[in-house]
Design a protein around this nucleic acid. Structure first.
Length: 253
DNA sequence: AAGCTAGTCAACCGCGTTGTA
DNA sequence: GTACAACGCGGTTGACTAGCT
């Protein structure tokens, strides 16, 4: 008896519009592996035609990426990996695929499931929560410092230009070095001025739920709490990388 | 032993993005 | 410029399992 027949007898593999659904059987896995060996990854929609699988492209891709890929690590995540996940989640939020790229052999699905079961429930009270918050705070301070430095440099340069236009002698001095700083984004917004703008306006102009601008701790509490206030309703924004609106799930997101 | 509950994880779904004709 | 298909991503669901009562 083939795997397929057995699965059908057990009630697996519902056929929906010609596509099989539900758990994969060994025979299907084998066909998919053979297909990828021959044709490589991609062109998932042609798998059914070429490999004779009654699965749609999406399903094939998912099965390969999350389960069949030979470079996948099996077994529990190590404490080291766990630590990385916590830190990267503090930085990137729910960008599971981005986080997964830093953990070779782990899939976004795996990390997402792991996060949901291990961290989500204890987020508020846990040490990890405080850690993540501290990390964000540090990143923010670093960013602010960098920004200040840049502003200072810019001011110095501007002043020099003003003075030099009126004082010929200054022109003999070596020009202001062009500081090409290798700024590693401490948070994704840094690549997008709109988001920096959002954060700055939040801090400078206040936000309905941000109580005291002068009280740093309060700001951080308010920012963090936006996660709960807005997070759920903005999941779609978190998903897409649209720059038009920030996701409040994390201040540095 | 049986029933219930919570945890885990594979798979599905919907939507946004990207590539191409 | 537009329409369509393929791909990729994050959220959610549901089957299975282990532990508890």
């Amino acid at each position: 008896m083939s795997w397929e027949m057995m699965a059908q007898q057990l009630g697996w593999g519902i056929i929906d519009e010609g596509w099989r659904k539900g758990p994969w059987i060994a025979e299907e896995d084998h066909k998919l592996i053979e297909y990828v060996k021959l044709h490589g990854e991609g062109r998932w929609n042609s798998v059914c035609r070429i490999a004779g699988l009654k699965r749609n492209g999406k399903s094939c891709r998912l099965r390969w990426v999350n389960y069949l890929r030979p470079d996948l690590k099996k077994g529990q995540l190590t404490p080291q990996e766990e630590k990385i996940i916590v830190e990267l989640h503090a930085r990137w939020g729910n960008r599971w695929s981005t986080i997964a790229r830093s953990l070779p052999g782990r899939t976004d699905n795996e990390i997402k499931n792991y996060w949901r079961t291990h961290f989500k429930k204890k987020t508020k009270s846990s040490e990890n929560f405080s850690r993540a918050r501290l990390l964000r705070k540090q990143q923010f301070q670093q960013q602010q410092q960098l920004h200040q430095q840049q502003l200072q440099l810019q001011n110095q340069f501007d002043m020099r230009k003003i003075v030099s236009s009126s004082d010929e002698s200054l022109n003999r001095q070596p020009p202001m070095p062009l500081v090409k700083q290798n700024i590693v984004p401490a948070y994704p917004f840094s690549a997008n001025q709109e988001h920096d703008g959002f954060l700055c306006s939040l801090i400078n102009n206040g936000y309905p739920s941000v109580p005291e601008v002068s009280n740093e701790a309060n700001i951080w509490d308010a920012l963090w709490n936006l996660d709960d206030v807005h997070g759920a309703s903005n999941t779609s924004m978190a998903m897409s990388n649209k720059p038009n609106l920030p996701t409040y799930s994390a201040p540095f997101y």
